[in-house]
């Protein structure tokens, strides 16, 4: 774990994750107080990245659960290995020639398939793993209420086996793109943080770290341009990941100067909506002058 808030910022920056004091405070406290960290924000601001970088920093496995509608316990927690159960019953029946004991222990740990949430509280971990519950807003309310239960004591009850409890509480990161409101009851149990788009300085630093091939001057131009684009009235604003994609694309093109032609041909890296692309094509010249 980290020693202090400043230490958190520094350790993460060694791993090329540039963060501000707000996020660092939330993260530091979540780790110290063994709470889940709930990260909300627009797509592409680096929510998922937090979990990845933590797993590298602590050198522990990253266990990821991608949410989707209809996600249920069978996919998220555990499932029985039905083919194996059936084969076992068959084999025992052939061996004994009768029906005695053929179904003993078929609901035992040998036949259990562990899904991400059960893996996260598994006793075999030497230290706390990082559990990433990604895009919780995509799951439905039923799953949310299950999660509420899990987060309160990090234990899972399997009727046939009993209650399993985590020896090391996993470092839990929950992300949401806010395509729907997550219930307050869940968020209150977590440390909540809204990740905003980074400032000009922060974003420049991020691009410098992640796309070192881009010249200093061009990096500044690219970031300034993206920051201006975010001030436009668009359906979908570009996130940091789009900035990075675009910057990388420019290195492949060997771009030395950000001119109108380059911007127009590579706009697809920044904007993913045709109306937005059309709108920006008209304004690109003006924005370039400002940037």
């Amino acid at each position: 774990m980290f020693d202090s808030i400043d230490d958190t910022i520094e350790e993460l920056s060694h791993l090329s994750y540039i963060t501000d004091k707000g996020l660092a405070t939330s993260l530091f406290l979540a780790l110290e107080m063994e709470r889940a960290l709930f990260l909300e924000g627009e797509p592409g601001v680096g929510k998922t990245e937090v979990a990845k970088v933590l797993s590298t920093a602590f050198d522990t496995p990253l266990i990821r659960l991608q949410c989707y509608e209809g996600l249920d316990i069978n996919q998220a927690v555990y499932e029985w290995n039905y083919p194996r159960q059936l084969l076992e019953i068959q084999a025992r029946r052939d061996a004994s020639g009768g029906l005695e004991h053929v179904t003993d222990d078929i609901f035992g740990e040998d036949f259990l398939l562990k899904r991400p949430l059960l893996k996260a509280i598994d006793q075999s971990h030497e230290k706390a793993p990082v559990l990433l519950i990604d895009e919780l807003d995509r799951a439905d309310e039923e799953f949310e209420s299950f999660l509420l239960e899990l987060l309160s004591d990090f234990q899972v009850t399997i009727p046939e086996i009993g209650t399993l409890e985590a020896e090391h509480k996993p470092v839990t990161i929950i992300t949401s793109n806010r395509t729907r409101e997550i219930h307050d009851a869940l968020k209150r149990r977590c440390v909540y943080h809204w990740i905003d788009y980074p400032s000009l300085e922060k974003e420049t630093e991020i691009v410098r770290h992640k796309v070192p091939g881009l010249s200093d001057r061009l990096t500044r131009r690219v970031v300034a341009f993206v920051q201006d684009v975010r001030r436009q009235d668009l359906y979908k604003l570009p996130g940091v990941s789009e900035t990075l994609d675009w910057a990388e694309a420019l290195t492949h093109l060997g771009t030395e100067n950000l001119d109108l032609e380059t911007v127009k041909t590579t706009l697809g890296f920044l904007l993913k909506n045709q109306d937005d692309v059309d709108k920006l094509r008209d304004r690109a010249a003006g924005l370039l002058r400002e940037a």
């Binding site: 405070t25 939330s26 709930f38 307050d184 977590c190 909540y192 943080h193």
Partner: peptide, 10 residues
């Protein structure tokens, strides 16, 4: 920031 982390969730 500590206060914000715990007291606000929207």
């Amino acid at each position: 920031y500590a206060a914000r982390s715990f007291l606000v969730c929207r």
